[in-house]
Nucleic acid binder design. Structure first.
Length: 520
RNA sequence: GCUGCUAUAGCUCCAGCGGUAGAGCGCACCCUUGGUAAGGGUGAGGUCGCGUGUUCGAAUCACGCUAGCAGCACCA
């Protein structure tokens, strides 16, 4: 490519009629090009460009000559891509490259990519001893004590938030007979991606890939009145989906995951207010985790769908009003809604710039019908409730992956598995260090004690690398005065604080955001 | 799942291209008791992802499988 640039060949435009183009590509026996040209209406013309001996169709415009491209480019990767994005059609080779105005810009971009790689949750997850993955359980996470501490902290936070928002929590079975999945329609659509277990009798059980049918079963116990609505049923639902091998990615896309799932059973009139409340709750929670910049996709009615147009109008309007009321800007994703209703997708971006769907809100008129959910209205007649499927974090696994990349592993104190380390400087201060450690535990902090036979510089380095937010060094001077030398992650300054005060300060800084608010 | 690539010590990686391998970090032990990002010494640790084949002999060659990486397709 560099040689072509140096040759500075002129790039010239020409025009073909449709027939000329077809004749040209027939002669060259290029079936893909012929297909492209044939898609163009008869009688139209098309432009092509030549450069040296090379000729190709292109709408243009182009640079006047190859020399203008400069040398600030680099080929990045080679990969297959399906012809016209269809996995039933042949695969072509695609070459990816990046081009910049100057070589300096290119260099900066490449450095940026290298930096982004350091934030990769797969790398940090191992370095920080959060989790591991292994061959025998592809797509399932082995959570280590530190990662599990983080996981549970998020779960506890979510429980408080959901409880405050008037959700009740349930737990539904992992294995459910295939007949229920057939009734819900999932067997038909996703049966290939469901794990099944044969029982000794001739029954097939399926590992649940989602929680909705289970929630409907709980809803159906007893007669529901309009007075029971809206009914908000939440579950940290452990789901299994047999994802295609090529789709797996660290802990972002796995085969076993836990959704912070909930279904809101409500009337059509309540869709709007419930959606608004949900969007507000979601935004509030994202803010607590440090995400202010959310992409929201609005996916409206697909071509093949259930439900009449009036119902769709109502559902789409309700969703749109809700996003507006919640101050969310949405990107239209035309025709990408679920077959049962329109969908909001809350998307976050990872370190390498890949987008991941986290939260979602879907309006569903179909499942209540299929699984026969109903309520008794004011007039004594029976009606179908509407189901709002919603998740805020999406999957705990993905959320933690995104969080790790967002913070480069340097989690806020409330999420840090180890919030504080007491590092003794010499053996003679071990007793005092133990006392400080105990004080931290009593104050409710996740604290560790480091009395190893190592120099203080070594301990500081190690715990800083492990991204512990607070390191308390204690030596003879501190033991004498009843103080600690506090070093905060990211700072090389020391604060000498009395033991009586320091734990109150740090415990307060380590409070989850919702608890800090309610304390204030 | 598809296309291409990869798999060597707990981790990060080098050498080896038919005659069974090495570094740094980590780990263990010893010396050192040191005041804010690596103190010193000694040592242990690998049937080279798995299987089959070719060969006197396979980490190395062939075939198959598994997992991972990049992209595509998929994502209830």
């Amino acid at each position: 490519m560099h040689e072509i640039v140096d040759r500075d060949e002129p790039i010239e435009r020409g025009v073909w009629t449709r027939d000329e183009a077809i004749a040209f590509y027939r002669a060259k026996d290029e079936p893909f090009k012929i297909e492209l040209v044939e898609a163009i209406p008869e009688g139209e013309t098309m432009s092509y460009y030549t450069q040296g001996g090379f000729i190709d169709l292109c709408r243009g415009p182009h640079l006047p000559s190859t020399g203008r491209a400069g040398h600030a480019f680099k080929l990045m990767k080679v990969a297959g891509a399906y012809w016209r994005g269809d996995s039933n059609r042949p695969m072509l080779q695609r070459i990816y490259g990046t081009a910049w105005l100057t070589e300096k810009d290119l260099g900066q971009y490449l450095t940026m990519l290298e930096e982004a790689e350091k934030r990769d949750h797969r790398k940090l997850g191992r370095q920080l001893d959060f989790f591991h993955l292994q061959e025998e359980a592809a797509g399932s996470v082995f959570w280590h004590p530190k990662g599990w501490t983080l996981y549970r902290e998020i779960e506890m936070y979510m429980r408080r938030r959901l409880s405050d928002a008037h959700y009740s929590e349930v737990k539904t079975p992992q294995l459910i007979d295939r007949s229920l999945w057939e009734a819900s329609g999932h067997w038909d659509k996703f049966g290939e991606n469901m794990f099944t277990a044969a029982t000794t009798e001739d029954k097939t059980l399926a590992l649940k890939p989602m929680n909705c049918p289970g929630h409907v079963q709980i809803y159906r116990q007893g007669v529901k009145s309009y007075r029971d609505l809206p009914l908000r049923m939440a579950e940290f639902g452990s789901c299994h989906r047999n994802e295609p091998s090529g789709a797996l990615h660290g802990i972002m896309r796995v085969r076993a995951f836990t959704q912070d799932d909930a279904h809101i059973f409500c009337t059509e009139e309540q869709i709007n207010s419930e959606s608004v409340e949900f969007c507000n709750l979601l935004q509030d929670i994202y803010k607590d985790f440090g995400f202010e910049d959310i992409h929201v996709k609005f996916s409206d009615r697909p071509e093949v769908r259930a439900g009449d147009d009036a119902t769709w109008d109502k559902a789409e309007t309700a969703l749109r009003d809700a996003t507006n009321a919640a101050g969310l800007e949405t990107l239209l994703n035309p025709g990408e809604g679920a077959f049962y209703g329109p969908k909001l997708e809350f998307v976050l971006r990872d370190a390498i710039g890949r987008d991941w769907q986290c939260g979602t809100l879907q309006v569903d008129f179909v499942l209540p019908e299929r699984l026969d959910a109903e309520y008794v209205g004011e007039d004594g007649n029976r009606y179908r409730p509407v189901m709002l499927h919603r998740a805020i974090l999406g999957s705990l696994e993905r959320w933690i992956g995104i969080l790790i990349e967002q913070y480069s592993g340097r989690m806020p104190a409330w999420l840090s598995p180890v919030q504080l380390v007491v590092a003794a400087i010499t053996d003679s201060t071990h007793d005092y260090a133990k006392q400080v450690h105990t004080a931290a535990l009593v104050a409710g902090m996740r604290a560790e004690l480091d009395t190893r036979n190592e120099k203080i510089g070594y301990k500081i380095r190690e715990h800083s690398t492990a991204k512990v937010p607070f390191i308390l060094a204690v030596g003879g001077r501190e033991a004498e005065a009843g103080t600690v030398a506090l070093r905060r992650l990211g700072s090389d300054k020391q604060e000498i604080i009395h033991l009586d005060e320091v734990m109150a300060i740090l415990a307060d800084e380590s409070l989850p955001p919702d608890q800090r608010r309610s304390k204030a």
